[in-house]
Amino acid sequence: MTDRTGLALYDRAASQAAGGIIEVYSTSFALAARMLGPRVRAHVRHVYALVRIADEVVDGPAAQAGVDTAGRARILDGLEREVDAALADGFSANPVVHAFAGTARACGISADLTAPFFASMRTDLTTVVHDPASHDAYVYGSAEVVGLMCLAVFVNAGTTVPVRPAPDLVVGARRLGRAFQDVNFLRDRADDAALLGRDYLAIGDDHDRDRVLDGVDADLAAAAAVIGILPPDCRRAVTAAHDLFAALSRRLRSAPPDAARVRVPTSAKLAVAARAWLGGAPQGVRS
């Protein structure tokens, strides 16, 4: 097989396709990903590209294209079957799935993590108002397992035989993913209600909002405590992501409940990235 038709070429093309998805959809994530070491950078992009595509099946483009709820469920089921087959076979005709499967097979990511992820994506097609139990189940599948996938990459990329990450790192990855998701729920709350009819947090008053932010801050603090034991080529990027969401948490706490979508200005994002790049420890959420 020549270089122009071989698997290595397809692997590179699939990886570039996944990277392109991330560059278009998330400037903040793309910035943090550039801070990862080359050992892990492409793998993390592969994970997030699959997550992004699944989310686009559930919301936005698929619906705008005229695909009804049943149709989106079929597409999502098909995507999960593609992922399962690629995990087993090592190949997919879908470049994003192929890139993800290569990462998953190399780093020990299995259906134990992909199945709850797809289950949470399906929830968005059937559940519009969450109670605490359904919120926790949704967040585990939609965010915590993504953190665990990234942790598997951090620990296992470049190794011969994948191993289980240390328990403290598992807890930290889950809590960081949960903090990220709840911050996104808070700042997207008005759009989720107006455009999608969804309520993930069941916030009735300012006390409920403060309770959610207190949980976010506790999760961010717990995650910060273990960033220092991650592999060195991952710490700066994770610190930058942590500090960006800590900044969002602070801005949400000081903003009125009916404020427009809270953002961190580009200049502040760059300052967060620079501080992390220079080796700064994760910042406190209420500083």
Rank of each mutant, 00 (worst) to 15 (best):
T127R: 10
I109K: 01
D89P: 04
D131L: 04
E80V: 08
I109A: 04
T103V: 12
D112F: 06
A111V: 14
V139D: 00
F118S: 08
N94P: 07
L113Q: 12
V97H: 02
S110G: 15
A101F: 03
S120F: 00
A137I: 05
H135Q: 13
S134K: 07
A101K: 07
G108V: 08
V129M: 10
E82M: 06
A101N: 12
F100D: 05
N94L: 03
A137M: 06
F91P: 07
Y140K: 01
H130V: 05
E82V: 03
P116I: 07
D136G: 00
E144G: 02
P116F: 05
D112V: 15
V146W: 00
G108K: 04
A115T: 15
V96N: 05
E82G: 10
T123D: 14
V145Y: 00
A99F: 02
A143H: 00
R122E: 10
A137D: 12
T103Q: 07
R122K: 14
S92C: 08
G141D: 00
S134C: 11
T123S: 13
R81V: 14
E80A: 13
I109N: 04
L87R: 03
Y140E: 10
M121F: 03
R81F: 04
L87D: 10
V97A: 08
S110V: 12
L148W: 04
V97F: 02
A101M: 04
N94K: 06
P116W: 05
A111R: 15
A93S: 15
S134W: 01
A85H: 11
T126G: 02
F91R: 11
V129D: 15
D124M: 01
C107W: 06
A143D: 03
F91Q: 14
F118E: 04
V97T: 14
T126R: 09
M121Y: 01
A101C: 07
T114S: 07
V96M: 08
A137Q: 11
P132M: 02
D84H: 15
A101D: 12
V146N: 02
V128R: 14
A88W: 01
G102F: 05
F100A: 08
F100N: 03
V146M: 03
A133C: 03
L113P: 09
A93T: 13
L79Q: 10
D84N: 14
H135K: 08
S110E: 15
A106F: 09
P95G: 12
F91L: 15
T123A: 14
P95Y: 08
G108N: 05
R81Q: 15
T103D: 11
A119Q: 13
G141K: 01
P116D: 10
A133W: 00
V128P: 05
D136Y: 00
S142F: 02
D84P: 07
D84F: 14
R105N: 11
L148D: 14
V129Q: 13
V83N: 03
E82F: 03
T126S: 13
L79D: 09
A133P: 04
L148Q: 13
V129I: 14
T123I: 06
S134P: 11
L148N: 05
A137N: 06
A93W: 11
T103A: 09
L125R: 06
A99I: 07
E144C: 06
D131N: 12
